Lab assay of single mutants.
Amino acid sequence: GTVKVQGITIKVPNPDKAYKIAKKLAKKYNLTVTRKGNTIKVE
């Protein structure tokens, strides 16, 4: 899958794990995490 952070896309082998990490970071930096299948977008 991929993770998008402010325009940066990161390929990740485990979208579930990445999503959990993204959620933690999002809370810390007051961002929104959206997930569509293997693509995770943080904005």
Rank of each mutant, 00 (worst) to 15 (best):
Y29L: 07
V42F: 12
I21H: 02
N30K: 09
T9V: 10
V12A: 04
G37M: 03
N14S: 09
D16W: 12
K41Y: 15
V5C: 15
P15H: 06
A22C: 13
K17W: 14
K20S: 09
K27H: 06
P15R: 08
Q6V: 13
T34Q: 03
K17V: 12
G37I: 03
I10C: 15
V3I: 12
V12L: 08
G37D: 04
T34W: 12
T32A: 06
Y29S: 01
T32F: 09
K23R: 12
P15L: 15
K24G: 07
G37V: 02
V3W: 07
V33Y: 00
V5D: 03
K17I: 13
V12S: 03
R35P: 01
V3R: 05
E43V: 12
R35V: 06
T32P: 00
I8Q: 03
V3M: 08
N38R: 08
V33E: 00
T2N: 06
V33W: 02
K20Y: 12
N14C: 15
K36C: 14
T9I: 13
K36A: 09
G7K: 07
V33H: 00
K41F: 15
G7E: 04
D16V: 08
K4Q: 13
I21Q: 03
K17R: 10
K36M: 13
L25I: 07
T2I: 13
Y19H: 02
E43G: 10
V12G: 03
I40L: 07
Y19K: 03
T34H: 04
G1M: 11
T34R: 08
I8E: 01
T2A: 06
K11V: 12
Q6P: 07
Y19W: 13
R35D: 00
L31S: 01
I21M: 08
I10F: 11
K24W: 15
T34C: 12
K36S: 09
I21T: 04
K4C: 15
T2G: 05
V3C: 15
G37Q: 03
A18H: 01
K23W: 06
K27D: 04
P13F: 11
K20T: 08
G1F: 12
D16T: 09
P13K: 13
I40E: 01
K11M: 12
I10H: 03
T34S: 08
K17Y: 13
K27M: 09
A18G: 02
Q6D: 10
K23M: 13
K23I: 11
K36L: 11
I21E: 02
G1L: 12
K28W: 15
K11F: 14
K24Y: 14
T34K: 09
T32W: 10
K17A: 11
A26P: 00
K17H: 08
A22H: 01
I10G: 03
K17M: 11
N14F: 12
G1K: 06
T32E: 05
V33M: 04
K23G: 03
K28D: 02
K41E: 14
T39V: 13
K28H: 08
K4E: 14
K28Q: 08
K27G: 06
N14L: 08
T9P: 04
T39I: 11
T39G: 03
A22I: 15
P13C: 15
T39D: 09
K17L: 14
T2L: 13
L25G: 00
G1H: 07
L25M: 06
A18M: 09
P13L: 14
K20H: 09
V42Y: 04
E43T: 13
T39S: 09
G7T: 08
A26S: 07
Y29D: 00
P13A: 12
Q6M: 15
I8K: 06
T32N: 08
T34Y: 05
I8P: 01
T39R: 06
L31T: 02
V5E: 03
N38F: 04
I40G: 02
V42Q: 02
K41S: 12
E43S: 12
V12R: 02
K28R: 11
K36I: 14
P15K: 06
E43N: 07
I8W: 09
R35Y: 06
G1Y: 12
A26D: 00
N14W: 13
A26T: 02
Y29R: 02
I10M: 06
T39C: 14
T2M: 12
K4T: 13
A18T: 04
L31Q: 01
N14E: 04
N38D: 07
N30R: 09
I8T: 04
V3G: 04
G37P: 01
K23H: 05
T34I: 09
T2P: 05
I21N: 02
I8M: 09
I8G: 02
V33A: 03
K24C: 15
Y19N: 00
A18F: 13
T9D: 04
K20N: 09
K4H: 13
G1V: 10
T9S: 10
T32L: 12
Y19D: 00
Y29K: 02
P13E: 09
E43L: 10
E43A: 10
L25H: 01
K28L: 14
I8H: 06
Y19F: 09
T34V: 07
T39H: 09
T39F: 10
V5F: 15
P15T: 12
K36Y: 10
I10R: 04
V33D: 00
A26Y: 09
T2R: 08
A18R: 01
K24S: 11
T32V: 13
L31I: 09
N38E: 05
K41T: 15
G37H: 03
T39M: 09
V33Q: 01
L25A: 01
T2C: 15
K20D: 09
A22Y: 11
K24F: 14
G7A: 08
K11W: 15
V3F: 06
P15A: 14
D16M: 12
K28F: 13
N38H: 05
V3K: 05
V12I: 11
V12F: 09
Y29M: 05
V42C: 09
G7H: 08
K23F: 08
A26G: 05
N14A: 03
V5N: 05
R35C: 10
G7F: 11
T9K: 08
A18E: 00
K27S: 07
I21R: 04
G1R: 06
K23P: 00
A22F: 15
P15E: 02
K11L: 13
